[in-house]
Simulated scan of single mutants.
Amino acid sequence: MFGLRKWSTPFWKPAGPFIIGGAITMYLISKAQTAMINSDEYKNDPRNPAIAAGKKAH
């Protein structure tokens, strides 16, 4: 009665492209955020989280 069924519902095949797209989007946003934090304009800003975490300003 419980466990695997004879005709299980497919999950990975229809959801796979959305999961991969979400992972790629998260990676690209992370890279863009890191590039913006390390830019010359915000490198020495006291609101910069990199400075608060203990990284040295350039």
Rank of each mutant, 00 (worst) to 15 (best):
F11M: 10
N44W: 06
K56S: 09
Y42R: 14
K31C: 07
A35R: 14
G22C: 13
W7E: 05
F11N: 05
I20G: 06
A35F: 14
I37N: 02
F11Q: 08
S39Q: 04
F18I: 09
L4R: 04
M36R: 10
A32G: 11
M1R: 14
P14N: 07
S39W: 00
T25W: 14
G54I: 02
T34F: 12
L28I: 15
S39L: 10
K6L: 07
K43Y: 06
K55H: 03
I19Q: 03
P49S: 10
I19F: 10
A15S: 07
M36E: 08
P17Y: 00
R5H: 04
N44A: 14
N44Q: 07
P46S: 11
W12F: 14
T25Y: 15
T25F: 15
A23D: 04
I19M: 13
K13S: 13
A35E: 12
P14D: 05
N48M: 06
H58R: 10
P49V: 13
I19G: 05
W7Y: 09
D45Y: 04
I29N: 03
A23P: 01
S30Y: 12
M36Y: 12
I37V: 08
W7Q: 06
I29F: 03
S8H: 05
P10N: 01
T9G: 06
M36L: 14
M36Q: 11
T9K: 08
I20R: 03
I20N: 04
P49K: 14
I24A: 14
P17Q: 00
W12P: 03
Y42W: 01
W7L: 07
A35L: 14
G54Q: 03
E41D: 06
A53Y: 01
T34D: 13
G54P: 01
M1Q: 09
A15T: 09
I24M: 00
I19A: 15
F2Q: 07
A23V: 15
T34E: 13
S39C: 12
M26K: 05
P14K: 02
A50G: 01
N38L: 13
K13P: 02
P14R: 09
A23K: 05
Y27H: 13
F11H: 07
K56Y: 02
F11L: 15
P10T: 07
F18M: 10
A35T: 12
R5Q: 05
K6W: 08
G21W: 11
N38V: 11
W12E: 12
G21V: 15
I51D: 00
P49L: 12
P14T: 09
M36N: 10
A53H: 01
F18N: 06
M36T: 13
A57H: 03
I51M: 00
K6T: 05
A15W: 00
K55S: 03
P17W: 00
T34R: 14
S39V: 14
Y27E: 12
R47G: 06
T25V: 13
P17N: 00
Y42K: 14
A50D: 01
H58L: 06
G54F: 04
K55E: 03
E41W: 02
G16V: 01
